[in-house]
Amino acid sequence: MWKEAKKHLMTGVSYMIPIVVAGGILLSLGVIIGDDTSMGEQLVNYGVWTLGLMVPVIAGYISYSIADRPGIAVGLASGVFAAELGTGYIGGILVGFFAGWITNQLKKIPMHPNIAVIKPIMVIPVLGIGASAIFMWLISIPLAPAMTGLENWLNSLDGNNLLILGFIIGAMMAFDMGGPVNKIALAFCYATLAEGIYAPMAACWIGIMAAPLGLSLATLLFPKKFSKSEKGNAIPAALMGSLGITEGAIPYAVATPLKVIPVITIGSGIGGGLALMLGAESPIPAAIGIWGLPFVNGPFMLLIGLLVAVAIIAITVGFLRKESDVDDSEDAELSF
């Protein structure tokens, strides 16, 4: 049950990512140019419009994942309700699941073959969207104030609280190197981004990049403690890391999981916490890696956090690993 739900959520996230990247970059380009110029103002507008698709698309494609093609229309419309009623991303996810479920129920309505054709073009969209509207209205009663509260709380965080928030996000991002825990943290950062809270995404950046960068640095600093294929993997891993792909770290974690995973988790957490405490914020999603650095607020603070995390990871993994861990005979099954 949980496994299925996770799959639907991940499908929604995967369709949403390109939209957030494009919208976020348009928006921040506009902010950089200056939204008092006409060019900048236009870019901000187009960015905001693109980002407006975020909640409808996640709801639409969760619903698609559950109910296939008929679920898309019901989910997209429900997502618009979620956004308009002020329940944001969380509301979009919930109503996406409802939309998929109700679509599946409506598919089962028995109908005479002569009029069966109206089922996909009339019955499912109309009744499905109608039911989702009622559901959305009901859950918005508690959810909208809760979202406003969460927003205010996140906005009021400072100092040590930001450190803790940054630590948790950085650690979750690195922990499974692009797996489900990573995507849950990423989804949270998207949610806050949609509400105009930019700090969590900055920690997200560090959690994504620090592990592959730190591990490839470790192969340079401690060449005797890594196998041939691991050293050969250093450049691809560093490149992937700098492009915002944590998965480059996986081959190292496969070889000696206990000497890698705790280190990258804690190291990335510290870096994320530090950057947030120093005031780094990112209005664009962490999907383009280091190349997005010019678009963040406080790029220097983010860089400090990243470098600290990379250094902690490289040095600690180097010390924990023994030369006896190197196994050139059974070359790791993974290389790029």
Binding site: I17, G179, M240, I245, E247, G248, E333, L334
Partner: peptide, 20 residues
């Protein structure tokens, strides 16, 4: 298939092909 669709998807393909 993976959520981001840029890395795990293709690493899994390689892994399966090698193992097969």
């Amino acid at each position: 298939a993976c959520p981001a669709g840029v890395a795990h998807t293709y690493m899994a393909k390689k892994g399966l092909e090698k193992a097969a």
